[in-house]
Amino acid sequence: METSFAITGKGYVIIAADTTAARSIVKMKIDEDKIKTLSPHLLMAYSGEPGDTLQFAEYVERNIRLYQIRNLYPLRPAAAASWIRRTLADSLRSRSPYQVNLLVGGYDEATHSPSLHWIDYLGTSVEVPFGAHGYGSYFALSLLDRYHNPEASLEEGLDTLRRCINEVSKRLVVSPGKYKVKVVDKDGTREVEL
């Protein structure tokens, strides 16, 4: 089943999402990238109803880009999360709501601090030190309660992420095989190998 995690640390946010695209019981694809880079310092992991996910993610991506072109500066993470949340909240009471769950992580260049927003398809948004979506959240959140450290270095943060992924692989019946991991910090966004 689809699973995504995100962890904040000292000056960075790590976001991980599994790479399987499944239809019913069949794996259609095992190298799907479900983390979009919205702006130089903003990442978004998306999961949910296939079709809705990519459609919505691209809509967000283009609008965040448009804002940057018009204003010559990008939206800060909290503002971007707020706009995305509102889009989902409006969609919820429309004829066909997007069923997309998100983790929006960014590095705020104004305050030099990482920020992570947990957003679900209803438009519920909350800033969290760590977050997760999907069945993996039932295992990861309790682990992160124990091991998360906001002052951890990137390497320590990645170790904590490994703990989460290993636990999900060990205990979840329908666990995903591979994950794509991305980091955002003062230097921008990049993909990292675990």
């Binding site: 949340r85 509102r86 989902l88 438009g123 519920t124």
Partner: peptide, 11 residues
């Protein structure tokens, strides 16, 4: 009540 409406109504 519902989390999404907490934020929407606040705004």
């Amino acid at each position: 009540g519902l989390g999404t409406d907490v934020i929407t109504l606040r705004e």
